[in-house]
Design a binder for these strands. Structure first.
Lengths: 145, 145
DNA sequence: ATAGGTTCGGTACTATGGTACCGAATCAAG
DNA sequence: CTTGATTCGGTACCATAGTACCGAACCTAT
């Protein structure tokens, strides 16, 4: 759909050729399963290198993309958004990239605040629910905020 | 399965009777859809009140449970864990409740740290990818940690 | 050169947390 | 007392992010 795989890569064709991984090695390098690689290829997140007599060969750029995917997932991007980011990587659309980043930062701030609140509530619960006291813990009341 | 619905409720039978909600009102009170209520009932998170001639009637305790479910989800508990917490609510097993709370706090701490790291990375990206500069943004390099 | 591990490409299944749709019964307002 | 909205209980479907399994081809080490 978007033919930018490696075309505008930041890697020279030198370093493209420098490594050759099978799909299994690529998967290991990204701490994912082989099925996951294929799944990402299917979703347009990773290229499917040409198959010239034999198996497909992957390189360091693929490893970088794969690691990026995992980190971006941690940041809360969906695979669809990550696909867009990867497509954007090669292009000139700085404002779109910024837009995605800023939106995610806002969402992260909201989420972090939520989690910190939840953490407080759980600490309170754990304290109130200490052994020694008797009767049921006030679980339902844990989040009375 | 676990017959604790209201038996040891913190509500008196007084306040149990004090309110009568239809499923639609209950859903509205918890900012969820009617289907979601039924889904939670099916999963054992909410009771299905007796149906004596007509529609089922819900009360404030149900609203509290529903709100607890949503808060606990924010805290990262799965519905299965929330079911356990709700069952625990009526019982005496303080150590199990503490265990669940402490485990979740640890997971929350890890997650919050991850999100904060991701936030830093995105801020860096947004800065480096500001308008004015030329060429593609270093998106793939965003998470170089 | 052959046995055992990988890869290929495909379809199917999983878990989680809902949503949608259905016909029939029931309720609430005019 | 009719009309329109809700409820009931059921089955089916959805999105997200994978994971499992398959037979056939291929690759590697002995």
């Amino acid at each position: 759909m978007v033919p930018n795989q490696g075309a505008r890569s930041s890697l020279t064709s030198e370093s493209r050729r420098a490594t050759s991984l099978t799909i299994g090695k690529l998967a290991a390098a990204g701490h994912v399963g082989v099925q996951t690689i294929r799944f990402y290829q299917h979703r347009g997140l990773l290229r499917t290198p040409p198959r010239g007599e034999g198996v497909r060969h992957y390189d360091l750029e693929d490893v970088r993309r794969l690691r990026f995917i995992r980190q971006a997932q941690t940041a809360g991007f969906t695979l669809e958004e990550i696909r867009e980011l990867l497509d954007l990587n090669a292009g000139e659309d700085r404002s779109r990239a910024r837009e995605l980043a800023m939106a995610r930062i806002e969402a992260l701030d909201a989420k972090i605040a939520d989690l910190q609140q939840a953490r407080q509530a759980l600490r309170r619960l754990a304290r109130e629910c200490a052994d020694g006291k008797t009767g049921p813990c006030p679980i339902l009341a844990a989040f009375k905020v």
